[in-house]
């Protein structure tokens, strides 16, 4: 019931998103069959809104999945090096095979993302003490190092513009024919939903999961592959949407508790709604210019992250 209301709210946001933009749309002209208005709606607004919904929902689910399998509340693709590694992969493809179809670039990006996540896990394994706080800390620094590497290559190859496009989640360039890959990301996120129980079990830790008869390693690999795939898709189509996968699952779990199967629809809806709201905000705040959705979410996301950390401090004291 409450979930239904949330769906309605997101639908309303989507409707607003269809009408907000530089060139005005009017309902009466659409009804009158005005060709220009229909073209804008069909070629730009609908793709953009769909892209927002898909990217928001799948990134939020990817974040949730990652928190469950890595067993830390503060990880998500942009705090584990996954996003930066995907960007590095895309850069490598742009350097080596600029003509490759986008799906191939995305696949390579996904492989790099998986590699980046693997590197993160490897570093984690060597950390002597497993403090809740040190895990995201290492991830953020790893992200910084990967970012420096990416910047270095991009700088040498004169591709800073391209890198900038990925590092700033920006949907102003989304048109029909340039966002459809996101459906694939959403499909992967759906797999995560279907296999939710297994991931919840895997989240209990290796010993517990194994004693319950679960092939822990394989489930972990599946989970991280899904996360990497979703990340690569989102980065290649709309760029980095920072902290979304971190704050949405945390806020949902504050309200609902930690059962993944129950949380997934809420996380998906809230993720989609939050990204939509931020994008609409970005379009109207400084019209006719646009503020990228990545910038707005960066501010909201890091602030929320900060509050989550400090809230933990008060509880611990």
């Amino acid at each position: 019931m409450r979930l239904g209301l949330a769906f309605l709210l997101v639908a309303a946001l989507a409707a607003i998103s269809l009408t907000v933009g530089v060139s005005g749309l009017s309902l009466s002209r659409l009804l009158a069959g005005d060709g220009r208005d229909w073209l804008i709606l069909w070629e730009s607004r609908v793709p953009r809104t769909l892209a927002l919904l898909l990217a928001g929902a799948s990134m939020a689910i990817a974040g949730l999945l990652m928190q469950i399998v890595i067993r830390n509340r503060f990880v998500e693709p942009s705090t584990t090096g996954t996003v930066e590694a995907a960007g590095l992969g895309l850069l490598v493809m742009t350097l080596l095979a600029p003509g490759a179809p986008v799906i191939v670039k995305m696949a390579v990006g996904a492989v790099f993302a998986l590699g980046g996540t693997g590197l993160f896990l490897l570093v984690l394994r060597r950390v002597p003490l497993r403090d809740q706080m040190i895990v995201p800390l290492i991830g953020i620094i790893l992200t910084g190092v990967l970012h420096a590497a990416t910047t270095f290559f991009a700088y040498r190859a004169d591709l800073m513009q391209t890198v900038l496009a990925w590092t700033q989640g920006d949907l102003s360039g989304v048109l029909r024919g340039r966002y459809e890959l996101l459906w694939l990301g959403a499909a992967m996120a759906a797999v995560a939903w279907i296999a939710a129980d297994r991931f919840t079990l895997a989240g209990l830790g290796r010993d517990m999961a194994t004693s319950l008869g679960l092939a822990h390693g394989r489930v972990l690999a599946l989970g991280l592959s899904i996360v990497s795939g979703v990340t690569a898709v989102v980065v290649v189509t709309v760029g980095i949407i920072p902290f979304l996968g971190l704050i949405v699952p945390n806020l949902v779990s504050l309200a609902l508790g930690d059962n993944m199967r129950r949380a997934v629809p809420w996380v998906a809806v809230s993720g989609a709604g939050l990204v939509l709201a931020c994008d609409i905000l970005g379009r109207i705040l400084r019209a006719p210019y646009e503020i990228p959705v990545g910038t707005i979410l960066g501010v909201i996301g890091s602030l929320t992250f900060l509050i989550l950390i400090l809230k933990g401090r008060r509880n611990a004291a």
């Binding site: 503060f74 403090d131 706080m133 040190i134 995201p136 800390l137 953020i140 620094i141 920072p242 705040l285 400084r286 210019y289 503020i291 990228p292 910038t295 707005i296 960066g298 501010v299 890091s302 602030l303 992250f305 900060l306 950390i309 400090l310 933990g312 401090r313 611990a316 004291a317």
Partner: peptide, 29 residues
């Protein structure tokens, strides 16, 4: 009050990110 080093570090790092994105946001405005 005295607190754990890792929490302090994480707070600092995230605060840094917050300040950077906030600066970027204001610049966009």
């Amino acid at each position: 009050e005295e607190q754990s080093l890792h929490r302090l570090l994480l707070t600092g790092v995230v605060f840094g990110i917050f300040l950077r994105t906030l600066a970027e946001f204001v610049q966009r405005m």
